[in-house]
Every structure is written in structure tokens, then in C-alpha cells.
Design a protein around this nucleic acid. Structure first.
Lengths: 243, 243
DNA sequence: TGAATAGTGTCTGTTAGACACTATACT
DNA sequence: AGTATAGTGTCTAACAGACACTATTCA
């Protein structure tokens, strides 16, 4: 890790390299108004600010005094913008290059988070939800954030095929048709009700509560996530690809 | 990304934060002598070098003049230590904290690479292959590299259940029993020959060459990877967990 | 009673798992 | 001929896909 020569005319063992900028960005997803939505932040326009007024993923520099590690930094950024903690936070990957930030060589550690729909209340003033239309978002994003968002959406879509991740997008109590709806919104295709129910009910993921959702039709059983439930991985995807 | 206050008593918009150290580490896998093996590098003992003489993952500081981006940096480290390019390189994740490097707050971008067995020829002088025994490696590793290695092994094992990744560990020509053996080595359990063959042959992954492997028994058809074949994802895992 | 949605049951197709069976080389 | 490994076929279990059918509420 340190066999490279130094760069300051010292003894060849120094670690005093020019250091890339280090940031953390978070892709925060929620389902709002029957669409998958992502949280964006509008950038300021101060002196030296790249991409003034552009929309960007919430994030920013690692603060080596406040942030014990990268994940703590991601949780801090998330909390700053939404006021809440996420029930699901996963590392997405890192993007680093000479070109992605006009201020110099920079590397960002990207995370993705899932928020229950209702938790979308106390947003920061500069933050806003944007629905995803055909995999992207309307405004042109700062830096390489469009690429990061694209990777996050792909990862989410892919994982939804064989995991219980959408459960983290649900409110505290929800019905099976509610959950199926969220799966369908993310995958953008209908699923078979019967197979869906069988899969979810046999997964030791949710438990019924003593209430029903009532409406102008047959009431539906309400469920909640089992306590501290880690995501479930199913052995098959939903629609085996290319029959 | 830059709405944080500055830290130098300037106008609150500077980006002149103290910067973490930025490194890249690569977990290089190969199958050697019927075992999964990982490439390690012995650290030097110069002044100020942390973990002198300890074994570590190949890697080191990002060189902002030579490395266009993180992946290029990983490829460079790999080439330096093995003399070859890897047919498969995937980002594994990043690890960053105040504690992982005694020289200060540091973040590493970890990659994992798969090498064909025979390509393990021209190693750097300080590099060596170590077989994995029960998921780990014998020597105590520098930094948090044991944790990174553990994550890489878990990721590999998991992906082998439903992808064609082991194909990248094979020499140019191989038989189906050869390939099955590599799957079994990584998964550490036997697989059904019939199901294995059906899966591989229906995957549009390999093609027969006009030769057979001869031995003291029935000859076996030799195959090669189809050109520029991306990894194949199967719709099911091998042994559906917990029937 | 009808509309609407919740929830179940039945049939079929695909494929993994188990394992027996055949094939083809060398000694 | 015997041994060893390559490769195929057959049967079964599990489960997703399709879709019909029943259940329960409100208007």
C-alpha cells in the first residue's frame, strides 16, 4: 500500500501525495404518488461553487473530525436533509476520476437508502423529491450524479427481483396488495398476485397485526415487518428471464 | 456537495477541507492446487511505514497524475504485481474511517479480480499466493485487509451460486468437469453433474473446440469461453437454501 | 344486488435434485 | 476384461405463471 515513491523529494517512503477530494453522496429513494422518487438538493451559487443552482444528490465532503467512518458520514448527510434515519442504507460503489469535479481529482463514496413513504415530511429547504421517469430524473444533475443515480436505480430494480427490499419503502403497517403495488412500481410490470402472496408469506418477513384496512370493498389484512428484519433473499427471480 | 462550512476561517464556501488519504486495494483470486488462493504483498519496513513486514492486499495510493480514474488505478496495481491484466475486475466496496490507517483518516476503494490459474506466472518479488483456509488466510493482514478479504470471499461465494464467474478462473480451454470442479472448490460442496451441465450448456457461455482432453479414461470435450462474454446470471441459485 | 378488491385453489411448465445408466478411453 | 471418468436419461419435487374461482365489504 505504500511501495510507491514519494513525490516531495523526500526519502521515497513518504505518504505525502497530493490527495484527491473525498466525498460521500446518498441516493435516497421513496415511493410517492405511485412512483419511485429520489431526493435531490439544489446547489448553492457561492464563489468557486461548481454547478451553481444545479440539482445534485445529497452529499458532501467527508469531515474527518465529525465522521468516524464513511457510513456515519452518509447517515449524517441523510439526517441533515430528511430529518430522519433510514431503515435501509447500503453502499452502492465509488466513483473517482480526474474529470468528475472541476475542483480537481475527486472520489465519492455513494450509498443508497430507502425511506418509507410517510417519512418524507421535514425536508431541508434546499431538498426536494423528484419522480423517476423512465429510469432518470428531469433536471440535469451536477457532477456525474446522473450516472450514480442510474447505477442506483439499476441496482434497486435488480435486487427487487429476488429480495424483500421494498419492505423498507412501506409504512409501519401495510397490506399485501400495498406491498405488491410497490414491487410493481419499481419493476414497472405487473406481478402475479398468487405467486407474490405465497412468496411473501412464506418468507418469515412480515406478521399480521390485529387490524384490517377497510375500504369500499373486501377489507385487507394489515401486516408489519418483523422486528429488525434483515432483507430476505429469495432463491429465484420473479419472472425467470427469457423463458 | 459543498454546502458544508469551510474549515479555514474563509468565507464558508471553500472546499479546502483536510483530505483523507485515498487508496485502492485489489483482492486477486485464482484457483491453485485445488484451492481458492489470494494474492498478497509483503509490506516494506521503511521509516514511517505502518505494519512493517506484514502481508497486505496489493494496492496503494491513488496517483492523481497517472491514474485517470479508480478503475485504472486498480488495473495498474494489478499489472504491477502480476504482470497480467485480469479478465474480470469488479468493484467490491469502499472502507474509510479514522482508525484503519495509523497515518490518519483514510479511505480505500477495494476491487476484486479473477485470474486464470496459469496466468499466475510472473509475480512481483514481494508478492505471493496464499490458499484460503476456511474463508481466511494464514498470516495476519495489515490494516483492515482481513475484513476486506472476508467481504470479497463472501461476495465471490454468493455470486458463484447464480453466475458464471468461475469461467474467468479457467484457462483458455477447459472441460465441463474442470469447470464444475472450480465451482465446487469455491462453494465447498459437491454439485450435481447433470444439473450443472444442463445449466452451463444452455447458457450461451461456452463453445466446444475441436479437441478432447485425453486421459486414462473416456476423453472429455474441451470448451472455451465465447468471445468477450459478460458474466451470465442464472435465474436460480444452485441449491435453493433451506428447502 | 352489484361493484370492487382480497384472498384461494387448480392446472401446467420448467428446472433442479437424485441417481441410474450408457459411452469411451487407457491399462 | 476391468477401471475410471464423461456424458445422458428418467423420475420426482418444488415452485412460478396463468387464471378461474370464492369471500367480504360498501354503496
Amino acid at each position: 500500500m505504500a511501495e510507491q515513491p514519494g513525490r516531495n523529494g523526500t526519502n521515497g517512503r513518504t505518504f505525502d501525495f497530493p490527495r484527491p477530494l473525498t466525498t460521500v453522496d446518498v441516493v435516497v429513494f421513496a415511493v410517492r404518488e405511485d412512483a419511485l422518487a429520489v431526493l435531490l438538493v439544489q446547489r448553492g451559487a457561492g464563489e468557486g461553487e461548481p454547478f451553481p443552482h444545479a440539482w445534485a444528490l445529497p452529499g458532501g465532503f467527508v469531515d474527518i473530525d465529525r465522521d468516524r467512518d464513511l457510513e456515519a458520514c452518509a447517515r449524517r448527510k441523510l439526517k441533515d436533509k430528511t430529518g430522519v434515519a433510514s431503515p435501509y442504507l447500503e453502499q452502492l460503489g465509488s466513483w473517482g476520476s480526474a474529470a468528475r469535479d472541476p475542483r480537481g481529482w475527486s472520489a465519492t463514496h455513494a450509498y443508497f437508502a430507502l425511506l418509507p413513504a410517510l417519512a418524507a415530511a421535514p425536508l431541508a429547504a434546499d431538498a426536494q423529491w423528484f419522480p423517476l421517469v423512465s429510469g432518470g430524473v428531469k433536471p440535469k444533475l451536477a457532477f456525474d450524479h446522473a450516472e450514480i443515480l442510474d447505477a442506483a436505480v439499476k441496482r434497486l430494480r435488480n435486487k427487487v427481483e429476488y429480495t424483500s427490499l421494498p419492505a423498507y419503502l412501506m409504512p409501519a403497517e401495510f397490506t399485501l396488495p400495498d406491498l405488491q403495488k410497490v414491487y410493481e412500481i419499481i419493476l414497472d410490470r405487473p406481478l402475479e398476485k398468487s405467486a407474490f402472496r405465497t412468496r411473501m408469506l412464506s418468507a418469515d418477513l412480515i406478521e399480521p397485526v390485529a387490524r384490517m384496512r377497510r375500504g369500499p370493498n373486501r377489507p385487507a389484512q394489515l401486516y408489519r415487518l418483523k422486528k429488525a428484519r434483515a432483507p430476505v433473499f429469495f432463491a429465484r427471480t420473479f419472472n425467470p428471464p427469457e423463458g
